[in-house]
Every structure is written in C-alpha cells, then in structure tokens.
Design a protein around this nucleic acid. Structure first.
Lengths: 218, 218
DNA sequence: GAACTCCTCCATAAATCCTTGGAATAATGT
DNA sequence: ACATTATTCCAAGGATTTATGGAGGAGTTC
C-alpha cells in the first residue's frame, strides 16, 4: 500500500538525476555535449578540468542516465542520452533565469550589457530567406561541423577579427553560438560593432534551434 | 572576454537550481506543491519530515527560486514559482524514466505491476464527452479543492472502499491522481478491480493535465 | 608481447550537505 | 504585556561529495 520506503526510493532515484545537474562543472560538460559528442580528453580541455575530475563527473552523468558512451579505438566518446536531456538543460536554464536573482546577476556579469540587438528564430529564418542578412556561426569549428544552421558560415570567434573581409561591409551580420547562455555571439556582435559593422545575434542558439526541430546542416 | 570566473559563476548559479532538485525529500515537496499551495506544517506532515527539516528544504527551494511564499496570519504558504517549475519537475521525471535503469526499477517497485489499463488525456476527454466513463479524483480532498479535472468526483483513496455504492456498478470508472509517478490511481484501479468493477486510470495526472493547458475546475 | 595512449577505478583529504534540537522571530489572541 | 501558534535561524554531529594523484584496464602500434 502506501509503501513509504518504495516511494522514498523512487524519489531518491529521481534525485540522482537532479544530483547530476547539481554541479556547475557537470553543467558545463552537458552544455558542451549538447553541441555534439566528444572524447573525455576533449571535454576536460574544453571545460578546464583535470582528466580524472572530468572522468569522475562524466561517470556521475552516466549513472544518472543523462549521457551515453561509444568507444572508438582507445578513445571514449560521450554524448547526451537523448533530446529530452538537452530539453531538460534548456528548461533548467530558463527556470533559473526566470526566477533566480543569483542567476540573473551572474548572467549579466558574464554576458555583458544586454544592449545588443537580438533576433528570434522566426525573425532570423525570415530574414535569411529574404537574403537580408549574413549568418555566421562563431562556435569552434568542430561544433559547426557537428551541425549548424543551414546557410551559416563558420567564423569562430577567435578568427573573427582576421576574417572581417569575408563579411559584407554594408549588410547586417547575424551571429549565433551554443545557446541562450553562451557568450560567443554577444562578443562577436560587440566586436563587429567596434569595426563599424551592423551586427545582431540570434537570441538563443544552436541548442534551442535543434530543440525546435528546425533544419540542421552538416 | 572569456572571463573564466564569470562563466563558472553563471554555471554555479544554474547548478544551485540543480542542487535544489538533488534531494528526494525536496522533490517530494515539489511534487506536493505542484498540486497547490500549502503551509510548512502541512508540507512537513504530508512528506513525513520534521518541521525544521522541511523548513530547511523549503529555504533551499526558495533560494533557488523554485518556490515563493505568502504569509497569511501566522502561517506561511509555499507554492511553486511558476508553471515552468512544474514543467521542469515533469521533464526531470520523464528523463529519469526514459534513461535511468535505477528509476525504472524504483518505479516498478513503487507503482506495482504495469498491468492496469491506462488512458491518455485525449482518450479520457473523448470518453468523458461521450458520457462513457465515471471519472474519480483519488487525491486527498484538499488537492481536489485546489483544482481538478472538470466532471471528476472527489473520492480520496482512503474512502474508496466505503463509497463504492456511489459508483455505477456496470460502467467504467477512471481514476487519476497527482501525476505520472503517483501511486494513488494505480491502487484505486486495483481496489476497484478487486471489487469486480471495470476500472482504468489516466496515464499521468493532474500535473500534466495543467501543463497541457486543459481546463481545470475549482 | 612491449610500449603507448586514453580512460577508469581507488584512496584520501578538504569541502559541503543533511538532520536534529533549541533559541529567536512574527503575527495573533487574552 | 503575556501567552500561543507557526516558522525561521543557528549550531553541531554525521554523512556525502569533490578534487586530485597514482594504479590498473582496454585497445592500438610496432
């Protein structure tokens, strides 16, 4: 009947999923994995973690069922266990942004002043279809290769300053990156504006684009 | 620029939302709050927690922005900070059920054999509209009062055995409760079947009904 | 099979979290 | 003012989690 122990066990099982989301380091890993699969070493480097530390965190994520692995040669590639995991990460972020003052403060401090022009996905699609904008993907090239918005040009943020010549001088350039809390597009817009270009950014990023089931090019 | 400390701070801020979801006890509180607001004492009693323990957990949830409070006289009522929080809880459960073997095991152990007939929301609406079924809400009366499916009769599980006379002997009775991992409807169906009634349950429950923006009676 | 790469497992110390009782606070009633 | 009810704050122990080195396993190359 009202089996107390069984109920507690079920909620503890759900909590182990919550626990997986209870560390900033692990969330960084999830955020990276939402862009595509990666090896342990690549994840550790990208997240600035020690190898064993990264491996430990990945075990926690795996135990909770959020990620799965694939072995290729000596390397082990991790990826998210499903679209629903990406959706969970996106929703966690949204809830935090909507209700936590602490998140809002940290968001503003990291992303910078919210004065850059932002386009919704729908606006971007319309302006892309009309040929009114040049779209650039400012994530690292590897992430572009794992899937990007059709029509986007890969211009990693590092290379942006050197590759301004490739972008039309008079049109609007729209930058996008990983997702709603990714800093790359913000910085790209500021850099472009500093060079006198008219620039805007996609309000969120590739994560939300995929979740909206919009077409993805590879 | 690539301000490492600011990025870490933002992800830690998101993680504090994750931490709020990292305890089975807190998830029980969230599950209760998804049914409607309650006082601290009522929550502690319903979740089987010490008063100070419950208050502590509620502080964690509040700090993360998942719940908000309202004072009325000497009592403090807690409620979820928004629909998105309920959605987050529902999605966390779904992800756990989909990918974690541990969750599946605990779910089966708590909810019992999955042999009871389940209806989707759409099926239920159609059969209700056609007058083919009697719908009963087997949650505690207080939760029914805070909002229920239109046309449902309040028959808390405790009272079900004594109130069989109120239910048609030859029709189908459909029971529902809090949500997808709530045991009440499962037990109600088993109890009804044991008394020779034809019974089924709504596959999920009130939480998902609200999230689907279906009409709610009060 | 020896050397090598990549990753996981284990042990440990530091940090953090959970639970619990008792004191403090806030609103209400006498 | 004082007592009462409902909740939060504080402190302390015990349990859990985290970061990090070093040992061990799996797969590849020679």
């Amino acid at each position: 009947m009202g089996d107390h122990a069984a109920k507690a066990a079920l909620f503890e099982a759900f909590a182990s999923v919550g626990k997986a989301l209870a560390s900033g380091k692990r969330l960084e890993l999830v955020d990276l994995l939402a862009q595509g699969e990666r090896s342990v070493e690549a994840l550790a480097r990208a997240a600035g973690l020690g190898l064993t530390t990264a491996s430990n965190h990945l075990q926690v994520l795996r135990q909770a069922g959020l990620v799965v692995t694939r072995r290729q040669g000596t390397k082990v590639f991790y990826r998210l266990a499903g679209t629903d995991v990406a959706a969970l990460w996106a929703l966690l972020r949204q809830v935090g942004s909507a209700h936590s003052a602490e998140v809002e403060r940290a968001r503003a401090a990291y992303l910078g002043p919210g004065d850059t022009e932002a386009l919704t996905r729908e606006q971007l699609r319309a302006r892309l279809a009309a040929g009114e904008v040049t779209l650039i993907d400012v994530r690292p090239e590897q992430e572009y290769a794992a899937g990007h918005i059709p029509g986007a040009l890969s211009v990693p943020l590092d290379e942006l300053a050197d590759r301004l010549a490739e972008l039309p001088a008079d049109g609007t350039v729209v930058a996008y990156c990983r997702g709603a809390s990714c800093v790359l597009a913000h910085e790209a817009v500021r850099a472009l504006a500093a060079h006198g270009r008219h620039a805007a950014r996609l309000a969120d990023g590739m994560l939300e684009w995929r979740l909206a089931d919009l077409p993805v090019a590879v």
